[in-house]
Design a binder for these strands. Structure first.
Lengths: 359, 359
DNA sequence: GGGGCCGCCTATAACGTTATAGGAACGGTA
DNA sequence: TACCGTTCCTATAACGTTATAGGCGGCCCC
């Protein structure tokens, strides 16, 4: 039992192992592994080779423990949400640029936000980025007393919380302006219910139609964030009389449900009805969906979230608590001029039974 | 500079802070926080209160560094994949039951599997669970020399690797048996290309139709894992003559693309064509899709993956390297008896132009 | 030749926790 | 009184790393 090290060959090699192998101090090995100056080229090379040979990997726990700063940013995300997935991808890039590491903690069925946050607290993250959190503001505020908190894609008004979000109202302005420019006047907005951002998008819709003097020929239909919500809303839409020629939808998932029901009902898109989504998710980009939609700038949002966390940690003086990112419109193939507009009856009117009975 | 502790009030409290606050040793606080015997009820209560009051959270880095075992299992997953998302949810549950923690590392655009794995190695994970990895077997085998590796949802034959996967061939047997039982004889399988599991599902399809003596009236169409692949395959399907009455599809995403194109072409499902997917993903369960599909048993797969990792770590003697989980069929509304079968012409034939020109 | 600086290296002490060993006080027993 | 076993508690040394403070030559410059 002179050398327990040798009796357990499975032990992971440490700095000391590499140092002993080369015949130098652990400090020198540490210098070389961190690529900081202070070692001769000869030793640098020998140490690198020994580390490679022994399969040495630094122990991040020990590193983080020793270093005053962990340079770790925690991210809470919903593991099934495609939008969160895209954001996480962007965050990895942005964190790398800022020289921070990311610690991921998922919200999943059976694992709520409190659990996810608690695990990140234990990991000594210096700041937290929460993607579309649904925890009460009081909980978020309490967290903010402990460390910088950046909330993404949810509007929270609290002086201790940073927020990065899309200008949802502006997004609906873009959508409505686009439809009006195409010649539509009878429009409807399918709402997101209590989902984050839904109220602002609804407000944006109202503002835009009022600006165009189209308040009387506009509607809001109850909906929600999911495909099912969209499908239900589309059925209600089919009963409207006279039928609007264009629809703005809370998000792309919901819009997909709308498109599906319209297609099954024999209503052609964009022939009889134009549809605009929101998010520019993977869904919208699928060639068979090819949805005109309001794109959130995921890259910029990720960048801003990380930068804001970093600025808070650095004590940099920042201005607004809330960073609002402008969306932009991506025109694809679900929008076109209305064919039933009195002013320009270009194409033949639709011949489906529904259209006939409602026209 | 007598007490730097007091001069920086923002520092996170440590065991020592709690101990000083109560007037006991750090060891005693540690005992209480870990809920191990050896402290008097009075002190136990006082320490708990002090910890709460100071907002003390144990530093998991220091804990893991000190403890011989980290009890940490690393998980590599694709951050945008809904199936991986479901699995991660299951893994959290299973890991909790086995008294392990999970460390998540995402594969995302700009962050490949090597990066994801390297970060977990640094975190001193004791084992790795890789969800549908696409790294070469050689890389996985090299990892397996370092620690237990469990591969989920991909078939890899290597004596050092544990595999947990669905019995893909059996899944297609279920699908074909179901269709045949409904009365279908002309079927087609839309393939997954090079996606994991595609070859086995294709083989299962071939086996099943041969068993039913339907080889001559069966086809395989090239496809892929995405909605777009399904949409393209569906267009090819529409050109088949005579048109098959039922389709088995590589997965639910691909099936969604198929359904969409069929719907736009005026082909009714399940009236004219029955469709069976694979995965039972969220997609399939949406009420407006309501897809008959082969369900992978996510709960069992998660459980088996964690258990296998644990057994390897415990040195438990386990049998097979490969754990094959049986799928089951979920019948929803995209399958029905064929209406064009000579034996029972129940409904009126469809009247859409496409159907007419091809019928 | 003295002083200063630079390049290379090492010893030591942390970081916050837990494992180990052991001490003090107390009651019970011989 | 001596001895034992509990119960409750503490001191100390790790875990693997890095920050700090040097040490030791050698070279340059007055």
């Amino acid at each position: 039992m002179a050398e327990p090290t040798r009796s357990t060959p499975r032990r992971r090699p440490t700095l000391a192992d590499v140092a002993a192998h080369v015949g130098v101090s652990t400090t020198l090995v540490s210098l070389v592994m961190r690529d900081v100056p202070g070692a001769s080229p000869v030793n640098r090379e020998r140490i690198r080779r020994a580390a490679e040979e022994l399969g040495y990997h630094p122990d991040s726990r020990a590193q983080l423990l020793r270093r005053s700063r962990s340079r770790l940013i925690g991210v809470v995300f919903r593991v099934q949400d495609p939008f969160d997935g895209d954001l996480v991808g962007g965050l990895y890039g942005a964190a790398g640029d800022a020289d921070y590491e990311l610690a991921l903690s998922a919200v999943a069925p059976g694992r709520d936000e409190r659990r996810a946050v608690a695990s990140l607290l234990q990991d000594r993250c210096e700041a937290l980025i929460l993607l579309a959190p649904h925890s009460p503001t009081s909980f978020l505020a309490e967290l903010a007393g402990r460390m910088p908190i950046v909330v993404v894609a949810r509007s929270v008004r609290h002086r201790a919380l940073d927020v990065v979000r899309t200008d949802n109202a502006a997004g609906l302005h873009l959508a409505v302006d686009h439809l009006v420019a195409l010649g539509h006047s009878r429009t409807v907005h399918i709402d997101g219910g209590r989902a984050p951002g839904a109220a602002e998008r609804r407000r944006g819709y109202h503002e835009a139609v009022r600006r165009h003097g189209l308040t009387d020929s506009s509607h809001v239909l109850p909906g929600g964030p999911t495909e099912d919500d969209g499908a239900a809303a589309a059925r209600a839409f089919l009963d409207l009389h006279p039928r609007p020629t264009a629809v703005t939808v809370f998000n792309d998932r919901c819009a997909t449900g709308v498109l599906d029901v319209l297609s099954k009902a024999g209503v052609s898109v964009p022939g009889q009805v134009s549809v605009v989504g929101f998010d520019d998710s993977r869904l919208a980009r699928l060639s068979h969906v090819d949805l005109t939609t309001v794109a959130q700038n995921i890259g910029q949002m990720s960048h801003l979230a990380v930068t804001r966390a970093k600025d808070r940690l650095d004590g940099t003086d920042v201005g607004e608590r809330e960073l609002v990112v402008s969306p932009h419109l991506v025109v694809r193939s679900t929008t076109a001029p209305p064919t039933t507009t009195p002013s320009r009856p270009t194409a033949t009117t639709a011949s489906s039974p529904e259209a006939a009975s409602l026209g």
